[in-house]
């Protein structure tokens, strides 16, 4: 959690899209930005890029106001995937409330996925977050391409690890909202458990998700 201002009833949450280079993290945010109505969200802010590759991060903010007056601001970030930007990834990962791991579905990319996931685990530990407690959703992106690892295989591997898995093609725009929704739900449960969203601030899960995801 980035911030919780009890007096002004403002809560700032952070969701991070993590994953190997060129797996489609920015494309995910662009797609969300295109699909969701402007009510409930801000503009997509893309910091400087080098040859269209993220070197800092992208930010897409969402807003929600509960009947109790509590304002929730959710900042959705991407990290740079290239190995060399590890320090930036670590900085962005600070105080994250949920992580979406965007993996490349192609058979050739599985080792790189594993490497990036190991990097995620390592960096979470470095910034003091526990991968076991943090809401985490895995998206297998680029399902529109050939030579993919089969969905059954991916599900059998990742579901056995207890992680929700979503198939997607961010480029074609499918699976993106579903991924975000799955992550939002996990995020809600985690924050609710910690802060008592439902009991203390009358935040309704359905309402929370529906007000952020508006078509």
């Amino acid at each position: 959690m980035i911030e919780f201002d009890e007096k002004n009833k403002k809560m700032v949450l952070k969701m991070v899209y993590y994953g190997p280079a060129l797996s489609g993290k920015t494309t995910n945010l662009l797609s969300l930005h295109d699909k969701l109505l402007q009510d409930g969200r801000g503009e997509l802010m893309m910091l400087d890029t080098a040859e269209d590759r993220t070197i800092y991060f992208d930010l897409l903010p969402f807003f929600f106001q509960a009947p109790s007056g509590l304002k929730i601001k959710l900042k959705v970030y991407t990290v740079p995937g290239q190995v060399r930007h590890d320090a930036t990834r670590k900085a962005v990962l600070q105080r994250a409330d949920a992580v979406v791991f965007v993996a490349d579905s192609r058979i050739s990319q599985q080792a790189i996925n594993a490497e990036s996931f190991a990097n995620l685990e390592e960096n979470l530990a470095l910034v003091g977050l526990s991968i076991d407690k943090l809401p985490l959703v895995v998206q297998f992106n680029k399902r529109d391409l050939p030579d993919l690892v089969s969905e059954d295989e991916l599900r059998s591997i990742w579901n056995s690890a207890g992680l929700p898995v979503v198939m997607a093609s961010a480029l074609l725009g499918w699976g993106v909202v579903e991924t975000f929704e799955t992550a939002l739900e996990a995020l809600f449960y985690a924050v609710d458990k910690k802060m008592g969203l439902t009991d203390r601030y009358q935040v309704d899960k359905e309402n929370f998700i529906a007000s952020i995801i508006r078509f």
Partner: peptide, 13 residues
């Protein structure tokens, strides 16, 4: 050990 080196919390209002 890396945590104290980051003074800015990215996303701070």
């Amino acid at each position: 050990e890396a945590a104290p080196y980051i003074e800015f919390i990215i996303g701070e209002e």
